[in-house]
Design a protein around this nucleic acid. Structure first.
Lengths: 169, 169
DNA sequence: AAAAATTACTTTAAGCTTAAAATATATTCA
DNA sequence: TGAATATATTTTAAGCTTAAAGTAATTTTT
């Protein structure tokens, strides 16, 4: 495309001049750095201010959007984590009284997980503050920056999904 | 800023009209989704194709850039993970023959970690393929998209760092 | 309906991750 | 110098995470 070198036939080029993808690599590393940086800070504050972990907060956030509860499989898909992971996470949240677990009346294999009343109240208090933290972390971006970034990340998500879905099955 | 509502005094506004930051929250969730999606796919391929984990690959990537080796603390800062984490990670890479560990001649507290010859060769083979995966995952973005995204993520990184550094100390 | 396949979840083994406490060495300063 | 402080690393305890194997219930196929 913007290759200004002397033309070579395709085969020679493939062997001697493999395309350079360092630009994409740098982009990926920067994306990962942003994500790690923000995630680490959010984890730290959740622990310090509310003595809660990020996975527990994430799980409660999903449940808060589903007043009737969700099955483990629903949670697994939404949160992009394994089923086995959720079993233990839910165990601990049941023990701490934030959620409850019951067998689905429709399907005896399925467990329905719901926030308890106190779990919901606690989650909402945390979520309100969490939202301010996030706003603060992104506060140097203009409104246009945020809109542009949103759009480009949307495109990135689709691009990645295409690649991932494309070959797996 | 772009608030076109009827003016209210500061106190009333703070109580009755807390600012809404759902936009920033959505932006953060989308950033996290992109990162999780790509990272998960990279993990999966590293394991399937090369039987290596992402943390081990990341550690070797840092060492590949430092032919004289790095101390645990250097690695810790670069990789943004705890020292204790690295102790175990390095243990396993020493066992598998990818890196070696020796006491620094300058400071008897410090451990210098280096890639072994075979570790370096293996890393480079993996890195070459890894670079293609990343290019593929971002392939639906135009060259301009990538440049814009790079710039906006740079701004995001600075914004987050400002907030994080600003209050801690 | 019986067999086969699928789906929902749990268990297990291994590794990753952190914070906090402990150990050892180096540096600063009174 | 000697005491206090700081730095580099390891250890520990707890929790997160996954893949793979196992169990149980449901759905599909024959």
């Amino acid at each position: 495309m913007d290759d200004q070198s002397i033309p070579l036939d395709a085969e020679t080029k493939a062997v001697e001049m493999p395309e350079d993808h360092r630009e994409e690599l740098r982009l990926w590393l920067r994306l990962l750095t942003c994500s790690t940086l923000i995630e680490g800070e959010v984890r730290r504050r959740l622990r310090e201010r509310f003595d809660v972990t990020l996975p527990r907060f994430d799980l409660m956030a999903q449940l808060d959007k589903a007043p009737e509860g969700m099955t483990l499989s629903d949670l697994s898909k939404r949160m992009m984590v394994s089923n086995g992971n959720l079993t233990g996470l839910v165990d601990r949240l049941v023990t701490s009284g934030h959620v409850d677990r019951s067998v689905s009346p429709l399907d005896r294999r399925a467990m329905v997980i719901r926030l308890t009343e106190s779990g919901r109240a606690e989650f909402r208090a945390i979520a309100a503050e969490h939202e301010l933290w996030i706003a603060d972390l992104f506060s140097d971006l203009t409104s246009k920056d945020r809109a542009d970034l949103m759009r480009l990340l949307g495109k990135t998500k689709l691009s990645a999904r295409n690649t991932i879905m494309g070959e797996g099955q």
